[in-house]
Amino acid sequence: MNATEELLDERTVIPYLAGRGVIDAKRATARILGGGVSNVVLAVTDGSRRLVLKQARAKLAVAEAWFAPRERVLREAEGLRVLSGIDQDAAPALIDLDRDALTMTIEQAPEEWTDWKSRLMAGEVDPAVAARLGEALSRMHRATQDGSGLSAELVEDVETFDVLRIEPYHRTTARRNPDLATAIDEVIARMRDTRQCLVHGDFSPKNVLVGDGGAWIIDFEVAHLGDPSFDIAFLETHLLLKGLHAPQRRDALAATSRAFLDAYARDAPISDAGHLSRQIGCLLLARVDGKSPAEYLRAPEQRRAHELGRTLLVEAPDAPGAAWTLIEQGTE
């Protein structure tokens, strides 16, 4: 099989993995997993192993035309490998990587585990999870300074982050908000000039699997050598959006944000909180006006997210957690 052939499905994945010596085809079953916007995602078990196979799509499954290089699955596999080497409890094990078919197979989380986004949306807000994520992210950023431990391919890949983040989030938002285009372009320029450490690039609650005694960070397909503040801003944006969507849980979500930031900054202080504010501002605007709007925001919440994003981008308050203060002051 090669990367130009059709994508795998529940029928073809079993003989494919059996042919690679990963599973026993006679005992195996497969099913599609949800969330496959940018990948085909299949769960496969043969009674002794529970696995997840991912194969990158060339065209993402969203309403607008959005294409990305399929080789990003190689970046994802490397991100998981690197994080596991730094913190073995923070990521699933990589079982198989096929560079020709562009597939990656990893261990599946225990059955009772769920993604953190689902728990947050259901009202289960646990600052301890955020603290664990802050610690793991800080360790990853510190351990990979100046590209330490990263392949030349990952270090040289600047296209994937541009295609999957800068273009659909930042540039699309700038085109739809021309009065903010200069400010957004300045954030883009700084990100592109800051090639400091391994950046996850999609550090959001949907990419965290949580269960008793553990949490895994997954979906490294936007992994790149870049600006560490982007990862911090990405998670903060998601928590803020959920605070706007569910004001009755805003205090708990603010405490969760503090736990994340405190854990991250314990060993890697945030050097430029103003830049972090601008990063969050861009991402809030993008989740309203970009190619991937937050699907759960109602119209009034979209307006508040847009106003908060504009304020953070233009005023750039120089304090971590400033966005939560702005919300409480009613300036959202």
Rank of each mutant, 00 (worst) to 15 (best):
W66Y: 12
W66F: 13
F67M: 02
F67I: 08
F67P: 00
F67T: 12
F67R: 08
A68D: 01
A68M: 06
P69M: 02
P69C: 00
R70S: 12
R70D: 02
E71V: 10
E71M: 02
V73S: 02
V73G: 01
V73I: 15
V73A: 01
L74T: 05
L74G: 00
R75P: 00
R75E: 00
R75Q: 08
R75H: 10
E76N: 04
E76G: 02
A77W: 11
A77S: 13
A77P: 07
A77F: 13
E78F: 11
G79N: 10
G79Q: 11
G79W: 13
L80F: 12
L80P: 00
R81E: 11
R81G: 13
R81C: 09
V82W: 03
L83W: 04
L83E: 03
L83H: 09
L83G: 11
L83R: 03
S84R: 15
G85L: 02
I86F: 06
I86P: 13
D87V: 10
D87P: 03
Q88L: 00
D89F: 12
A91V: 11
A91G: 06
P92H: 14
P92F: 14
P92S: 12
A93V: 14
A93I: 10
A93W: 03
L94P: 06
D96T: 05
D96L: 15
L97W: 07
L97M: 12
L97C: 14
L97E: 11
L97A: 13
D98T: 15
D98W: 10
D98H: 11
R99F: 04
R99Y: 05
D100C: 05
A101L: 07
A101Y: 02
L102H: 11
T103N: 07
M104N: 01
M104Q: 09
T105H: 06
T105S: 03
I106S: 10
I106K: 04
I106Y: 07
I106A: 04
E107I: 07
E107F: 05
Q108E: 07
Q108I: 00
A109F: 08
A109T: 14
P110K: 05
E111C: 05
E112C: 05
E112A: 15
W113H: 05
W113Q: 00
W113K: 02
T114P: 00
D115R: 06
D115A: 07
D115L: 05
W116K: 01
W116G: 03
K117Q: 12
K117I: 07
S118Q: 12
S118E: 11
S118Y: 01
R119D: 05
R119N: 07
L120T: 10
L120W: 08
M121S: 09
M121C: 09
A122K: 11
G123M: 07
G123R: 15
G123S: 12
G123Q: 14
E124R: 13
E124C: 02
V129S: 03
V129G: 07
V129Y: 06
A130L: 11
A131S: 15
A131L: 03
R132I: 11
G134Q: 02
G134E: 02
E135D: 14
E135Q: 14
E135S: 14
A136K: 04
A136V: 08
A136W: 01
A136E: 01
L137Y: 10
S138H: 14
S138D: 01
